[in-house]
Amino acid sequence: MTDREEKNNRINVDQDEKEDANLVTASAGDVETIPVAQQTVRTILRRLAELVFLLLFVSTLLFFLLRLTGDPAAILAGETGDQEQLELIRKQYGFDKPLYVQYGVFLMKMLVLDFGTSLANAQDALGLVFERLPTSFTLVLIAFTANLIISIPLGAWLGSRPDRTGRKLGSTGVFILQGIPGYITGLILIQVFSVELRWLPSIGNQGPESWIMPAITLASFQAPQVIRVISANVSEAMREDYIRTARANGAGFNTLLWRHALKNAMLGATALIGAQVSFLIGGSIITEVIFAWPGLGRLLVTSVTTLDFPVVQAAVFVISVFVYLSITATDLAFIFIDPRLRRQRA
């Protein structure tokens, strides 16, 4: 700071120094930017505060939507249940009270993370969800990693010289792959590797060999999106002036692509990859159903169809938290990739 004041005092000396003084306010060299660590903490805190409101909103919406869809007591009582049984069940679960009272009770319990017990088997709802988390996350992690390992180099390569024949063919292939829906990929894989070749198990989570096909299915419709975004961004970046500057300084193809163009291209892809992770956490439902994968998505589908309110609420709560975590992670990734997003002190 003293350095800056000193410069300000000398401001009238000549044009050169006038420029310096103006620069000081907006330069990293003079430690005016907020340190990355501090900005990371700020981002996390801001996102956490938002998360509280998001959870309240989602839970409330879900609470009333679920109550509109049907009578859980009727499902619990079954086809043989008479009026008397219904009344009993309603009383037992508190369904006889006015809706606002039920809502109040629900909110109070949510504060201590108590979502009640499953209507189907009387287990703790949140416990059921947590039981499924490791299985779900195994799939998410493998699909995400496979996606990145394939997409980043392939996208960069396809975008580096889009006019070449090999790259054109590759891009067309990626385009076709993107057009194949996940359930078709999944069924083809099962047919080939489980039914015909009998190499891989087709259902459930039976250890690493059963992770392969679901992960491929998930990655096969997420990777083409990333490949195409990276490829388009890389080919745009390769035409930028800074590429010409680097080339004029003797940079070879690999330096230009991997050290100059790719990092700029990742800016656009990061947003997409972040959105894909959110989708994977909550929405790999089709894949989970095809492979009878005991994950969070399938639990959610089953609970909704059986009107198992507590489990639905608990599952959506947990999914919301993780989606928000992935959004926060995307924010942080941006700060690390793009120096222009590191804010400066006013």
């Binding site: 930028e240 002036d241 800074y242 010409r244 500057t245 680097a246 080339r247 004029a248 300084n249 003797g250 940079a251 070879g252 050290r259 100059h260 990092k263 700029n264 800016l267 990739i337 793009d338 120096p339 222009r340």
Partner: peptide, 25 residues
């Protein structure tokens, strides 16, 4: 040619706003 570029012949381009890579220091 790459050994000549930047080593024997140095070039200064027109637009300093876009001529440097924005994500590298």
């Amino acid at each position: 040619l790459r050994k000549v570029r930047g080593n024997d012949l140095g070039m200064v381009f027109q637009d300093p706003m876009t001529g440097l890579n924005p994500v590298r220091n």
